[in-house]
Nucleic acid binder design. Structure first.
Length: 279
DNA sequence: CAAGAATCCTGTCAGC
DNA sequence: TGCTGACAGGATTCTT
């Protein structure tokens, strides 16, 4: 489900509810996610104070006193529920529930269970096996035209697949890759090794802009996805190609040559693009 | 080695 | 109304 802007939005919501507060109750209700929730996690969390949050790619890290951090990935269908404490029944897909000293109840809900929860020593967060191989943060200066060009050299895979590879850049997913390629006027089918140069120079800024705008909008809300405070993100209204199969691309209005936005399948996932303006 | 397919799991929606 | 198949924001693991 969530890509970088949604994860960032969720992290900010968790920060507002949890940072500086003590966890007075914690329980894992179903440990068999993408990887098992470590046994004893509930016990480890109970009584801990939450010191702070950060995001790395699509992962959220929650720093606790006592030297450990909780590593959270929302997978495809994961989201967080933040509500007033008091509800004792657990909804069917609520795999982890916390309660704070200020009376907030925070639940991790993930029907498809592609998400994961782990515990990692704070001092070694970035050495965790799930984080160790991640590429640069797309909004950091370390992600730039030169660094992207470098990582695309010799890659014969389509640029669409390369940008989905978290080792090349950390946090892009299917929606934002489609949107960024549209904005850059690059075909998702183009071989990655042909991008370094002028094309990479177009691509990097639009990736940063797209993500920045999406974060400002509170992410994109699909179906039941909501931010922790229950608000809906609204970036989905800014999508130009994703989910717009058959519609006219806004770059070629009225042109008889425009066949409209096309959906194709690349490595098992939908790609939306305009064949006329994206080359 | 790299690239694409298969896989994990549940819910929803379109079409019949 | 029920049933079936396609598809969904991800990422690893298995095959070519």
């Amino acid at each position: 489900m969530p890509e970088l802007p949604e994860v960032e939005t969720v992290m900010r919501g968790l920060r507002a509810a949890l940072e500086g507060h003590r966890i007075v109750r914690a329980a894992a209700h179903r440990p068999d996610l993408r990887w098992p929730i470590p046994p004893g996690l509930g016990r480890r969390l109970t009584g801990a104070r939450v010191l702070g949050f950060r995001r790395r790619g699509k992962y959220i890290l929650m720093r606790l006193d006592g030297g450990d951090s909780v590593l959270l990935h929302l997978g495809m269908s994961g989201h967080m529920l933040v509500e007033k404490a008091g509800r004792n029944e657990v909804t069917p897909h609520e795999h982890l529930v916390l309660e704070t000293d200020e009376g907030w109840r925070v639940g991790f809900v993930d029907p498809r269970r592609f998400g994961s929860v782990d515990l990692v020593p704070t001092a070694q967060e970035d050495a965790h096996r799930l984080l160790a191989d991640l590429g640069p943060e797309p909004l950091d200066a370390a992600f730039n035209v030169a660094s992207l060009a470098q990582s695309l050299v010799g890659k014969r895979t389509p640029i669409k697949a390369a940008l989905l590879d978290q080792k090349i850049v950390a946090g892009l997913g299917n929606i934002y890759v489609c949107e960024a390629l549209f904005r850059a006027g690059l075909s998702p089918l183009r071989s990655a090794y042909t991008v370094p140069g002028a094309r990479a120079a177009r691509l990097v800024p639009v990736i940063k802009d797209t993500l920045t705008e999406a974060i400002a909008a509170g992410g994109s809300s699909l179906r039941d996805y909501v931010q922790p405070d229950g608000e809906l993100g609204y970036f989905q209204h800014a999508w130009k190609v994703y989910g717009h199969e058959g519609e006219k691309c806004e770059r070629c209005p009225g042109k008889p040559v425009c066949q409209g936005i096309r959906r194709i399948v690349q490595s098992g996932r939908s790609t939306f693009y305009c064949p006329r303006t994206q080359r």
